[in-house]
Amino acid sequence: MQRSIVTAIADMMPVAGDCFLMAVPFEPEPLPGQFVMLSFGDGRTDPFLPRPISIFDWEGGMLTLLIRVVGRGTLLLGRQAAGAAVRVTGPLGNSFPDDAGRVCFIGGGIGVAPLFYAAKRSKAKDRSFILGFRSADESYLTGEFSEVAPVRFVSDDGSLGEKMFPHEKLDALVAAGERPDLVVTCGPEKMMAAVHGVAKKHGLRDVHSLESRMGCGIGACLGCRVNMPGASVLVCKEGAVFDGSIFEEKQ
């Protein structure tokens, strides 16, 4: 059951690349791929709206959010200290499917955020990451991801892992015989569409977590509807996880 509560931040930790981790006590246990709506819990009306934030981790009643500063709202949230009140509504949206066989988690930039919990919770025999960042300087939590599953890093400038795009790495892995049963992605839309192209070429099952501006996260404001090539979707209610066919033009 979803809930909306005001709670005190348990911990704040800056990480590289304009990102921070925020830990808040929250029940119930979310499913991988779900998200929460996060706002200030001290009664201020500016910033007004909650932000949709994916779930980086949840362990024993403690929710951890990995947040990148992209505007005034996230900047001010990042300046909050432990003990400050926040409102958390969730867990919201559908979830990533799982597979007993081989699952490849592909993330780009801040899109890596939901993949940590997804890989950690996955029951797949073989789990691995392909994580793409602009550069080594703008990468974060690489050690944490490596503790969950083997990681192939790629970067735009080659300063971290190989100089290539995540979809190219997936293509190379499949060519080398490492064929996933399921591909789970989150990142820039271009990256996810490119991964879908590779997945389709090889006949792989692929799912993607979309991002959209949201007002409420619960299907009431209808603000997050996006027209994807494959369908017009209300991201908060129908997603945020969608099948790769969403990137294909409707026939």
Binding site: F48, L49, G215, C221, G223
Partner: peptide
């Protein structure tokens, strides 16, 4: 884009979906 936050408020152009 259908919604944007403004100081202590928001603009919407949902269009009566």
């Amino acid at each position: 884009v259908r919604i944007v936050e403004t100081p202590s408020g928001m603009l919407n152009s949902i269009g009566l979906e």
